[in-house]
Amino acid sequence: MHREEIDILRYALRRLLGAVPTLFLIITAAFFMMRIAPGGPFDQERTLEATVLENLNRTFGLDKPLWQQYAMYLNNLLHGDMGPSFVFRDKRVHEILGEGLPVSMQLGFLALLLALFIGVCMGTVAALRQNSKADYFVVALATFGITVPPFVVAPVLALVFAVFLGWLPAQGWGRADQMVLPVIALALPQVAVIARLTRGAMIEALRSDHVRTAKAYGLPASMVVIKHALRAAVLPAISYLGPAAAALLTGSIVVEQVFNLPGIGRYFVQGALNRDYTMVMGTVVIVAVFVILFNLMVDLLFAVFDPRVRYD
């Protein structure tokens, strides 16, 4: 046991070290791609006077050669500074993202939790009553969940529950009642995917020998499901967490816009469209770090749930 823990720790450490060059490559690629894009941060509806534009470029160091800007960015980043935003001029990028990150994390975490809970429940029910009406209903509902784009679901939810029924707020973040609709809108497509995954894995697990044996020994059916089948079925759901995180990121861009939430998903797109170079870089760095950590966590979770996995 002790030996195993060390193995896992070693493995985690190695993965984290391996993430450093990955991150470096991502930053470099994003930095230069962003700069090749036509247009700059000061190209708006209103063209700026040439002298004014010159002053701005000088203020932001855009008049320096590109490699120098790149070196400066990396240097700043090493010191924990993501630079000034080209658009939101009163704050540094890490300050802005620091305000938004907790919101996005809460939103994503709650949505994931909800999706896992409902998805696993629905999938289990469907698998236990395979080919029954309940099963078909779950499968149909789950499929429906992934066929309707979130930018349709989110405003419809807001319209029904905020405008027509008046039960929940239409926008904002902070109070519990403001969280309900965005979390549901974000979780919905994931519920669908997780329900399908769980159902498939459950069916397989229920057919497996040790579940049959357990049943044959006369253990109560619910015990069997919980102890053996569910445990086996959770694995695919966990392995889906990585892709789910990516999907949540995309979804949060839409949900944050529709419900007007102060999360970082919006800066991602806003930044790219405004050519807010540092803001885009900041979001890319944060998202990449997050995805790397998340994938590592998923792999470690595997070790907990599936003793067969070895780390060497």
Binding site: A37, P38, G39, G40, P41, D43, Q44, T47, L273, R275
Partner: peptide
């Protein structure tokens, strides 16, 4: 084009 590219 998007707005930055358009005006640029």
């Amino acid at each position: 084009r998007d707005i930055s590219a358009h005006y640029a």
